[in-house]
């Protein structure tokens, strides 16, 4: 199958520092790729380059074969990209339901309608309710996003991404800082997304047990470079990974 997302020689420099260094990689529908690497390896920066929050210094990004290197984040989202951020990135003063409703509204293409009150769009409200229910936040719909617990904020973050119904879903450490009993909720959601064979999923994750259970493929970044790429078993066993990353703490990370 042809790749849904591709980076070719993707590079970004901050002054003299090369944060992402000529990363060439293709991702296909039905595949969940875990991106791992030590802190500062450039995983989140790589995500930022793909979703358009950062512009590349060099190289190209293509979504469904279309070169999007010069397009901004909104345009890439409209092409089917969805992103859950590592640092929770909500509309803090707005209600939980409103956060999700805004994502639903964006996906429905209702951007400039000012003729009717927003409450008149029942369809958008109902869909937001359904998404909220799927992450288990239905009873917090009226709470200000800023007043949620950290774990609930992470769930809301994921819910907003899901509301976009992305063809390419990018999770940046979705379970970071979550309590042990909250982690399965998010993992279940990712597994459910994965069951759709047309969907491409990218996952940055530190917890190796999560990676082992979900990933079809592992990509390793070290110092901004692609250090390894392949089947989970082979990659985890490879010398470069043992040395650069996993060798330090397979037991501890799990």
């Amino acid at each position: 199958m042809s790749p849904s997302l591709e980076t070719r020689g993707l590079t970004v420099r901050f002054g003299g520092h090369v944060a992402v260094d000529h990363v060439t990689c293709a991702f296909r529908p039905g595949e969940l790729t875990a991106i791992v690497g030590p802190n500062g390896a450039g995983k989140t920066t790589y995500f930022n380059l793909i979703s358009g929050q950062l512009r590349a210094s060099d190289g190209a990004v293509a979504i469904f074969g279309r070169d999007v290197t010069r397009l901004g984040a909104p345009e890439r989202t409209r092409l089917g990209l969805g992103r859950a951020f590592q640092l929770t990135n909500l509309f803090p003063q707005l209600a939980v339901a409103e956060n999700v409703r805004l994502a639903v509204q964006a996906h429905a293409g209702v951007h400039y309608d000012m003729r009717r009150p927003w409450r008149g769009r029942r369809d958008l409200i109902d869909k937001a309710e359904a998404v909220l229910g799927s992450v288990g936040l239905g009873d917090r719909r009226g709470t200000q996003a800023a007043a949620l617990s950290h774990g609930d904020q992470r769930k809301l973050e994921v819910a907003m991404m899901m509301a976009l119904e992305p063809k390419i879903a990018m999770f940046d450490e979705p379970t970071a800082g979550m309590s042990v009993d909250e982690v399965p909720v998010v993992l279940d959601l990712i597994a459910r997304l994965k069951s759709d064979p047309t969907r491409t999923i990218l996952l940055v994750e530190h917890k190796m047990d999560v990676v082992r259970s979900l990933a079809d493929r592992i990509v390793v970044l070290v110092n901004g470079r692609l250090a390894a790429d392949g089947e989970p078993q082979a990659v985890i066993a490879s010398a470069v990974v043992q040395e650069a990353y996993l060798g330090i703490a397979p037991g501890k990370a799990a």
Partner: peptide, 29 residues
């Protein structure tokens, strides 16, 4: 009053709250 309570007006509030996220949702802010 209609404008600020329309779907468009709600996006304005979203942009006020977090322009970065509004863009990531696909709004051309």
């Amino acid at each position: 009053l209609r404008v600020v309570n329309s779907p468009f007006g709600r996006v304005l509030q979203a942009i006020r709250e977090n322009p970065f996220r509004a863009e990531a949702l696909g709004y051309r802010i």
